[in-house]
Design a protein around this nucleic acid. Sequence first.
DNA 1: CATGAATGAGCATTCATTCAT
DNA 2: TATGAATGAATGCTCATTCAT
Lengths: 206, 206, 206, 206
Amino acid sequence: MTPKVSEEYKEEKKKEIIQAAATVFGSNGFYSTTMDDLVKASGISKGAIYHYFKSKEEVYEHMLQQQVEQTIQVLTDKFSHVHSSIEKIAVLFDLYTSNEWLKEPKLNSVRNQLEHWIAGSREEERAKFERHSKIFHDLINSILEEGRDSGEVSRKLNTSHAAKLFWSMIDGMLLHASVLPSFSYLQIVKTAKEMYISFLQKGNLG
Amino acid sequence: MTPKVSEEYKEEKKKEIIQAAATVFGSNGFYSTTMDDLVKASGISKGAIYHYFKSKEEVYEHMLQQQVEQTIQVLTDKFSHVHSSIEKIAVLFDLYTSNEWLKEPKLNSVRNQLEHWIAGSREEERAKFERHSKIFHDLINSILEEGRDSGEVSRKLNTSHAAKLFWSMIDGMLLHASVLPSFSYLQIVKTAKEMYISFLQKGNLG
Amino acid sequence: MTPKVSEEYKEEKKKEIIQAAATVFGSNGFYSTTMDDLVKASGISKGAIYHYFKSKEEVYEHMLQQQVEQTIQVLTDKFSHVHSSIEKIAVLFDLYTSNEWLKEPKLNSVRNQLEHWIAGSREEERAKFERHSKIFHDLINSILEEGRDSGEVSRKLNTSHAAKLFWSMIDGMLLHASVLPSFSYLQIVKTAKEMYISFLQKGNLG
Amino acid sequence: MTPKVSEEYKEEKKKEIIQAAATVFGSNGFYSTTMDDLVKASGISKGAIYHYFKSKEEVYEHMLQQQVEQTIQVLTDKFSHVHSSIEKIAVLFDLYTSNEWLKEPKLNSVRNQLEHWIAGSREEERAKFERHSKIFHDLINSILEEGRDSGEVSRKLNTSHAAKLFWSMIDGMLLHASVLPSFSYLQIVKTAKEMYISFLQKGNLG
DNA sequence: CATGAATGAGCATTCATTCAT
DNA sequence: TATGAATGAATGCTCATTCAT
C-alpha cells in the first residue's frame, strides 16, 4: 500500500534527468537530441526515463517549466529588499549582466526557451506560451504600476506596453548574445538599461 | 547540341522551389518539414528538387539567403529619398509596422531566420551568422555615424552599441510577435521608436 | 541494475544475423541484397540488426571475417595429425574435393569473398585483403619451408612463389566452379593436385 | 529512306561509349558506377547513350563482349606463326606477362569480367558464361589435342581437364594480381608456365 | 523499479530511365 | 539525333517508443 520508494526519491530522479536534459537539449536543440544522448548524459536507462516521463516532449517541457520557475524565483528574490520601482528595474538589468547569467548553462537555457517558442509557435500550444509570458509580463507591469502610482515613473506611461517592450529587448539581446560571439553583451545591456529607465521617467509621448 | 534550357528557366525553377520552401518551412520548421511536404507544396518531383539543390539543408539555406537579400533590398530602397539620420531610423521603425510586415509570410520568414540562428548556433556556422548580422549592423551604424557627424544625434553616442541595441529590439519584438498572438505589436513598435529616437538624441551617459 | 542480457546472447544474435547474411548475400551479392532482404531472411527487425551492426557494410564484413576464420580453422585442424609436408599439401587438395566443400553454402562463401575482393580492390581497403591473404600465404609457405628443410620438396623451390601459385590455382578453380556448372570440379582439382605436387618435388628450374 | 547517319557513325558512337564504359566500370565496378559517371567520362549525353543502348546493363554487356572478342583476337594472332603445341602454350603464358598485360586497362578489364561472372552467376545467365568459357576452353583444348596427336604432350593427358586447369590458373593469378599489389605477378606466371608445361609433357597419372 | 534489446514507421537521398524540346 | 530536366520507386539508416526479463 505504501509506495515502494519515497516521493522524494522520485522527484530526485526526475531532477537528475531534467538536469542532464538541460545540458543536451541546450547544446544540440530539441530535434537533434536523441533519447540515447539523454541516456548517455544522465547515466539513466531509457526504460527509467520513460518511467518518469511519457515522452521526449514531456522531458523537454518539464525542463522548460523548471527553468522558468527558477528564473522567476531568482527575479523575485532580487526584489525582496528593493522598494523603488526604478530601482527594481535597474536591479533586473543588473541581474542580466551578473556573472551567473554569463555562464553557458544560462545561455543554453535561453536557447532552449527560444527554440521551443519558435518551433512550438506553429501549433496549438500558443496558450502555454501566453501563460508563461503573462507571468513575466505581470511581474514588470506591476512594478511599473507601482512606480506610476508613486510618481516614480511618468504618469503618461502605458505600463503594459512598457512591460512588453522590456521583455522584447531582453529576449532580443539574449538571442543575439547566444548566437553571436562578437555581441558586446555587457555594454549593450548597460546601454539598454539607461535608455529604458530614461524612457520610463519621461513616458510615452504619443 | 540543343542548348538545353535557359539559365532563366533554371533560376525560375529554383525560385519556385524556394517559394514553396518558405511556406512549408515557415509553417513547420526545418526539422518537422519533410521533403515530401516540399514536393507536395511545390508540385515538383523529389528528383527535380534534388536536381537543383543537393540537400534539404541547401534548400533551406538558399531560402534564408534570399530572404535576407530581399529584406536588405527593401530597407535600402526605403532610404533612397530620406536624408536625415533620425528620419531614416524613423522610416525603419515605420517599415516594421507597415502592412507588408504584418502578413504571415513575413513572420514566417522571421521564424525561419530565428530557428536557423538558434539551431545553428551550436555548430561551426557562427561565421555565417556573423556575416549576415554585420550587414544589418553596418547599415544602422553608418546612418548613426552620419547623424553624429551632422549633429543630429548625440555626440556621446557609441554608434556600434546603439546599432546592436537596435537590432536586438527589433528581433526581440518580432520574436514575441511571431509567437504571441496577444502581443500588441503595432503599439509596442511605436513605443520602441519613440524611446529609441529620444535615446539617440540624448546619447549614452555612461 | 539487472545485468541486461549475457554476452553469449549477444554473440548468438550476431551469429544469427551473420548466418542469414551469408544466405542472402550469397545468393544475391552485396549490392543486390537489401536490408529488407536480410530482415526477411533473418526474421530479425531492421532496428535490431542496426543495434548489432552499424551498417550493411559492417554486417558483410563480419560475415566475411567469420568465414575466413572458419576456413583457417578447418585447414589447421586437418593438419594436426599430418607430419609430412607433401602429405599436408595433399590433404589440402583433398579438403577442397571433400563433400563439405561441394555444398552451396561453401560456394556462396567463395563468391562472397571474391565479390568483396573485386569490388573492394578499387579502394583503400587493399590493406585488409593483404592481411587476409598473408594468413593463407603463410600457412602454405611454412609447410613448404619445412618440406624444403627436410628434403621432401626440391631445394630449388621458391616457397613464397609456390605458395602464391597454390592459392591462385585454388581460387581460380573455385571461381570457375562457382560460376560454371559444367566445370568438372572434382577432376580438375585432382589433376591440379598431381601437377602441383610433382612440381614441388622437382622445384623451379628458372 | 536512307538512314540519316551512316552505320559507321553509329558504330563509332557505340565504340566511344563502350570505351568510356570500360574506364568507369573498370575503376568502380558495375553497381557503383552511375549513368552520370558514364556521361561525364564519355562526354555523351544521357539521352544519347540510351539511344544506342537500352540500359546500363546492355552497355556493360557490350563492353564485356567486346573485351572477350579482343582478347580472343589477340590470342589467335599470337599463334599464327607458331606450330608446336608446347610452343603455343608457352607463347600464351608469355602473353600474360607481356607489357600490354601489365597496364591498368587490362587489369580493369579482368576485374570487369570477374565481377560480371560473380554477380551474374546468381541468375539465369549462366548459359552466357558457358558460351564464353567454351570459346576459351576450345582454344586450348584443340592445341592440346594437336600436341597429343603429334606426341608433343603426354598421351595420357585428358586435354579437356588440362584446358580447364589452364584457365583456372590464369584467372586465379589475374584475380590475385588485380587485387593484391604485393602479388609478384611476373614471377608467379613464370613459375606457373614451367609447372604447367612440365605437367603437359608428363601427363596425368591418375 | 531498472534495463537495454527490439520494433518499424518515417526520412533523406540516389539513380536508372523517360521524354519534351 | 541530341540534350538534360523530370520522375518516383527503391534503399540504407534513424530513433521514439515498447516490453520482456
